[in-house]
Measured scan of single mutants.
Amino acid sequence: VIAMPSVRKYAREKGVDIRLVQGTGKNGRVLKEDIDAFLAGGA
């Protein structure tokens, strides 16, 4: 999974398994917005 360390930390704090999140950034990078969208109700 491609993600910046700050995004990985954010996901950990929110209790999200970053491997389950679909990245929308360049080359499938997971963004902070992707974590929020995942929490809001889905992949």
Rank of each mutant, 00 (worst) to 15 (best):
V1K: 09
V1D: 07
V1S: 08
I2F: 03
I2M: 04
I2C: 11
I2R: 10
I2Y: 03
I2D: 11
A3P: 05
A3D: 05
A3T: 07
A3W: 02
A3F: 02
A3N: 05
A3E: 05
A3R: 05
M4N: 15
M4R: 15
M4K: 15
M4F: 15
M4T: 15
M4I: 11
M4Q: 14
P5V: 10
P5M: 08
P5S: 11
P5D: 13
P5T: 09
S6F: 07
S6T: 08
S6Y: 08
V7G: 03
V7H: 02
V7N: 03
V7D: 04
V7W: 02
V7Y: 02
V7S: 03
V7L: 05
R8Y: 10
R8A: 08
R8G: 04
R8E: 12
R8Q: 12
R8W: 12
R8T: 08
R8S: 06
K9R: 13
K9F: 08
K9I: 09
K9L: 09
K9W: 09
K9H: 10
K9S: 08
K9C: 12
K9P: 01
Y10T: 06
Y10L: 05
Y10S: 06
Y10D: 06
Y10N: 04
Y10R: 06
Y10M: 04
A11Q: 01
A11E: 01
A11R: 00
A11W: 03
A11P: 04
A11T: 01
A11F: 01
R12I: 15
R12A: 15
R12L: 15
R12G: 10
R12W: 15
R12Y: 15
R12T: 15
R12F: 15
R12Q: 15
R12P: 02
R12D: 15
E13G: 07
E13T: 10
E13Q: 13
E13V: 10
E13M: 14
E13H: 09
E13K: 12
K14S: 08
K14V: 11
K14I: 06
K14W: 07
K14F: 07
K14P: 00
K14M: 15
K14N: 11
G15T: 03
G15Q: 07
G15R: 07
V16Y: 01
V16C: 06
V16Q: 01
V16G: 00
V16F: 02
D17L: 05
D17E: 07
D17S: 05
D17R: 05
D17H: 05
D17K: 04
D17M: 04
D17Q: 05
I18H: 02
I18L: 11
I18N: 00
I18A: 02
R19P: 03
R19F: 08
R19T: 12
R19G: 09
R19H: 11
L20A: 11
L20Y: 11
V21H: 00
V21R: 00
V21G: 00
V21P: 02
V21W: 02
V21N: 00
V21L: 07
Q22L: 13
Q22I: 13
Q22R: 14
Q22D: 08
Q22A: 12
Q22M: 12
Q22S: 13
Q22P: 12
G23N: 02
G23W: 02
G23Q: 03
G23I: 02
G23M: 02
G23H: 04
T24I: 03
T24P: 01
G25Q: 03
G25T: 03
G25L: 02
G25K: 03
G25W: 01
G25H: 03
K26H: 13
K26I: 13
K26F: 12
K26W: 09
K26S: 10
N27A: 09
N27D: 14
N27M: 10
N27L: 09
N27G: 14
N27C: 12
G28M: 06
G28E: 05
G28S: 06
G28P: 02
R29A: 14
R29K: 09
R29L: 12
R29E: 15
R29T: 10
R29N: 09
R29V: 09
R29D: 08
R29Y: 08
V30E: 00
V30T: 04
V30F: 01
V30L: 05
L31V: 10
L31T: 13
L31N: 07
L31I: 10
L31G: 05
K32F: 10
K32C: 11
K32W: 07
K32I: 13
K32Q: 08
K32R: 13
E33Y: 08
E33T: 11
E33W: 08
E33F: 07
E33I: 11
E33R: 15
E33G: 11
E33H: 12
E33P: 08
D34H: 01
D34C: 01
D34K: 00
D34Q: 01
D34V: 00
D34N: 06
D34M: 01
I35K: 00
I35R: 00
I35E: 00
I35S: 00
I35F: 00
I35L: 03
D36K: 04
D36I: 06
D36N: 06
D36E: 06
D36V: 05
D36M: 05
D36Q: 04
D36Y: 03
D36P: 01
D36A: 04
A37G: 08
A37K: 13
A37L: 12
A37I: 10
F38R: 04
F38Q: 04
F38T: 04
F38I: 07
L39T: 06
L39V: 10
L39E: 05
L39F: 07
L39Q: 06
L39R: 06
A40W: 10
A40K: 12
A40N: 13
A40G: 10
A40H: 12
A40M: 14
A40T: 12
G41A: 14
G41P: 10
G41C: 12
G41M: 14
G41N: 15
G41F: 11
G41Q: 14
G41T: 14
G41I: 13
G42V: 14
G42F: 13
G42D: 13
G42R: 14
G42L: 11
A43H: 14
A43T: 14
A43W: 13
A43D: 13
A43S: 14
